[in-house]
Design a protein around this nucleic acid. Structure first.
Lengths: 226, 226
DNA sequence: GAGCTTTCGCTACGAGTCGTAGCGTAATGC
DNA sequence: GCATTACGCTACGACTCGTAGCGAAAGCTC
């Protein structure tokens, strides 16, 4: 979190219960008020602590909301459903479910917007949200490479670039779908998204009833002009 | 814009010059102050108009910034570079260049964040930004289908879904790359992105020196190292 | 030009939030 | 007991908000 706790200090320790109460109160306030009408005084009242306690622990509203929202994404897990396509669909649906919650919508985007003028905040977001979920991409890719669904990437630099690209494409698409387009990232959408991500736009559209998953050893772009 | 101008009204007409001055002042204020520190009073002073004039034309800060940012995206054009991959790369680079500007970064995301609790604002964004740029996807796909680079989609419902999906994937990825990852969407990144978008993750990575994304029947493109 | 209508610039205002300072008290380590 | 730190509470100046009220300006219609 935000606390500098140098292992052992003299004096009264900070209440850990207050931390969780404050972050929960922040999420509740995000749901009821949204980002713009959320005030630190209100959060303090909801959490049952003094306003000054908030200012002693967090530098301001963006940092507080960042921490409150970050906890939402810790429940993400990469399922093992047997194929890369199914795994992607599973984790993307989880991600979409979190983003559908009002506290995530309202808080996450506002913090990101704020971070465009605040490098420290951007780094905080990166460390507490992005970096922690990068494991999903890494694990998913490694698993798919073992299955032979993805080509190996020996060059570590190239490999890192690919992971970043995948993360931007997955997270970006779901966020854009949910927040900008304002439509739900439901199963149907996720299937179409996964198909394009794995096979590309040039591939045939999925036939009705067909599972959009890429079978192992799928040759790239198995069709020409039909 | 926001003005209700029922063709002809009696009385003094609104100054069109004030409109452009206000929107320009808003963008300037976004650059210098960012979203959170931008105040309508400050914008009014910069534009040389009274604060009350602003409130007569716009309901609030989000609506004003939405209009100010929307104008930035009107300069987008779909190039005709001979192949779908090249066209995508061209327009994505334009999009990335706009998003790299501080007034776009700071303003766009904040407005989107605000729109999560304001349906009217979300619709305003959709109409003034998203819908107006959808033409790029429609035109690009039609062109690619004529070239045989993309399969035809006879079902209009399925076709509309695909357009929405492409828009979410393209815009979402660029936004996420620029704002969340905080790295530039430069030519190298755009090449990798376009390759995945067209051919999918399952395809072989581009070899060093090889041109990315060459869908079926694509004539070799000119060059990208001038 | 007379008259009507709407916009514009200006000033002033109450309401609300911000972030901080100050003080006495509570909880821990030595 | 003593030093140290966290906590709750109150109060404060500074700032922004959005609006009301007024006289003047700029169009249109006749």
């Amino acid at each position: 979190m935000q606390s500098r706790t140098p292992a052992s200090r003299t004096g009264r320790p900070r209440s850990a219960a207050a931390d969780t109460a404050i972050l929960a109160a922040t999420r509740q306030a995000l749901v009821e008020l949204g980002w713009s009408k959320l005030t630190l005084g209100d959060v303090a009242t909801r959490a049952g602590v003094a306003k000054t306690t908030l200012y002693r622990r967090w530098a301001g509203k963006p940092e507080l909301v960042c921490d409150a929202v970050a906890e939402l994404f810790d429940e993400l897990e990469l399922p093992d459903l047997g194929s890369l396509a199914a795994d992607i669909e599973g984790v993307v649906l989880q991600f979409a479910a979190i983003l559908a919650r009002p506290e995530a919508k309202s808080g996450l985007m506002a913090v990101v917007a704020e971070s465009t003028r605040d490098d420290a905040l951007r780094e905080r977001i990166r460390a507490s949200i992005v970096e922690r979920q990068m494991r999903l991409v890494l694990e998913g890719r490694a698993r798919a490479q073992r299955r032979g669904e993805l080509p190996p990437e020996p060059d570590p630099q190239e490999s890192a670039r690919t992971v970043d690209l995948i993360f931007d494409m997955v997270a970006g698409a779901v966020v854009h779908r949910t927040l900008v387009s304002g439509k739900p990232a439901d199963e149907e959408w996720v299937r179409g998204f996964t198909r394009v991500l794995l096979l590309g736009l040039a591939s045939q559209p999925a036939e009705p009833g067909a599972q959009g998953a890429a079978p192992p050893g799928t040759p790239p772009r198995g069709d020409d002009t039909p």
